[in-house]
């Protein structure tokens, strides 16, 4: 009756509210935890101590070189057809503008095909705004990550993107972007749905829109750490079932949702099992990834460092898409692997978490490891509003719900325990 023991302890028993309370203490203490910052390193030290306080002894850290992009002053003023402040967030690691800013006319494209069909003369010297409608994150986020490169190739002097979200109260959403090789690095930022749509309407009426963009930032490299907390298995300690979330966040908001919730349900798994004196046959490893936001930097470093032992990863799990009410798992793996996980999920019908969604690339950090053939899963949860808050000042504790966090922590812990304890390994392709 392991499932019931874990669920009761977390949902009704001594652990009730603990995940939320510890997350709140953490978020209130450290706030945002950007890659390369001192506050991120202090928050890592705090999590190590929090695990030690629970009598977890197998804790290691692994150093990783990470980007340290620091946002400076940013503002955009619409100069024509009228003066208006435009809310923005620069996209890391955007370059700065000259101190006086960049003043230019805006040209708007709905998608990359429209840009490709425009002549260089039409784009050269202008600010390009991409205004795609949000469909799915995966489909739409390319306009954040690639817009600067695509616009620069056509001669643009800066690029803007309509924030990657379905909903806005004039909230810009930051995120990462990548400069391609051999293109001019131009400043790039996200603006709000409201301002992007305003500019679109003006331009569609053949009204000239002129902006002044001022953005300052610095970029260097620092050393950070992935953190590994092990609850050693009783029979096959070399074999791993990994639960994980990332500890870094963007510099706006406080990273309570992205990915404080995922971090703390993954912290909770070995803690709950230790408290209940439940030790599965295989080792449960909780990983707190560093520097996920600038490009899965911690995950790439872990994959490289542990490549020779990757056969020992029996299953890898990650929560980085919200810790709202759990619905089940988004699973990548062989047919037999999915069948085993499906049978395990049947045990969670009572809490509404028995859905198995097939997904070739669940999670963010763990995608790096899953693509090498390791089976894994992301937490499938009721996250319809996740992108309302994602990478904004709104990512605070108010997004989190204590009862939903309890359900996630209980589900996460019980699933990891069962996978780590059953007779069969999770088979690969």
């Amino acid at each position: 009756e392991v499932r019931d023991e874990i669920l009761n302890y977390v949902i009704n028993g001594e652990f009730k509210g603990k995940t939320f309370d510890e997350l709140a203490k953490f978020v209130d203490t450290f706030g945002a935890r950007p890659s390369g910052s001192e506050v991120l390193e202090k928050s890592i030290d705090y999590m190590i101590q929090l695990a030690r306080d629970e009598d977890l002894k197998d804790i290691t850290t692994e150093e990783v070189e990470v980007p340290h992009w620091v946002r400076g002053e940013e503002n955009i003023t619409m100069l024509e057809p009228r003066v208006k402040n435009i809310a923005l967030l620069g996209l890391g690691p955007s370059v700065s503008t000259p101190p006086e800013g960049i003043t230019a006319e805006v040209i708007v494209f709905n998608d990359f095909d429209e840009l490709e069909n425009a002549t260089n003369d039409e784009v050269t010297g202008k600010i390009v705004l991409f205004d795609p409608e949000f469909t799915t994150y995966g489909e739409t986020v390319v306009y954040r990550s690639q817009s600067a490169t695509k616009a620069a190739a056509k001669g643009a002097v800066a690029s803007l993107v309509r924030s990657i979200t379905q909903f806005s109260i004039n909230s810009p959403h930051t995120g990462s972007q990548v400069y391609g090789d051999d293109v001019n690095k131009i400043p790039t930022a996200a603006i709000t749905l409201e301002d992007a749509d305003l500019i679109r309407r003006l331009v569609d009426r053949d009204v000239k829109v002129k902006l002044n963009i001022r953005m300052q930032s610095t970029l260097d490299t620092k050393t950070s750490r992935n953190t590994l907390v092990d609850l050693k298995g009783t029979v096959l300690p070399e074999k791993l079932v990994i639960v994980s979330g990332h500890i870094d966040s963007w510099d706006v908001g406080q990273g309570a949702m992205d990915d404080g919730g995922g971090l703390f349900v993954s912290w909770a798994a070995p803690v709950i099992l230790k408290r209940l004196n439940l030790r599965p046959k295989r080792t449960i490893r909780s990983i707190f990834w560093t520097a996920e936001e600038p490009g899965l930097v911690g995950a790439y470093a872990y994959e490289k460092k542990h490549r020779n032992e990757s056969d020992n990863i029996n299953f890898i799990m990650e929560s980085d898409e919200g810790t709202f009410a759990p619905l089940g798992l988004a699973v990548s793996g062989s047919q037999k692997a999915r069948c085993i996980i499906g049978e395990i999920l049947k045990l969670f019908e009572s809490i509404g978490a028995s859905e198995l969604v097939e997904d070739d690339s669940p999670g963010s950090d763990i995608a790096v490891i899953i693509k090498t053939g390791v089976p894994g899963a992301g937490l499938h949860n009721a996250n319809e509003k996740y992108f309302w808050f994602h990478h904004t000042e709104g990512d605070t504790m108010n997004v989190e719900d204590p009862d939903e966090l309890d359900l996630c922590a209980a589900f996460w812990t019980a699933v990891a325990y069962i996978i780590a304890d059953i007779s069969d390994d999770i088979p690969r392709e």
């Binding site: 047919q335 037999k336 999915r338 069948c339 049978e343 395990i344 049947k346 198995l356 069962i418 059953i422």
Partner: peptide, 25 residues
């Protein structure tokens, strides 16, 4: 997405493993 059919899983896993997993509940 498409979920695995129950019958496919039953033959892949076998009764013993299915019963073992169910025993955790």
């Amino acid at each position: 997405r498409v979920l695995s059919k129950e019958s496919v899983c039953q033959s892949l896993l076998g009764e013993e493993l299915i019963h073992e997993i169910a025993s955790y509940g």
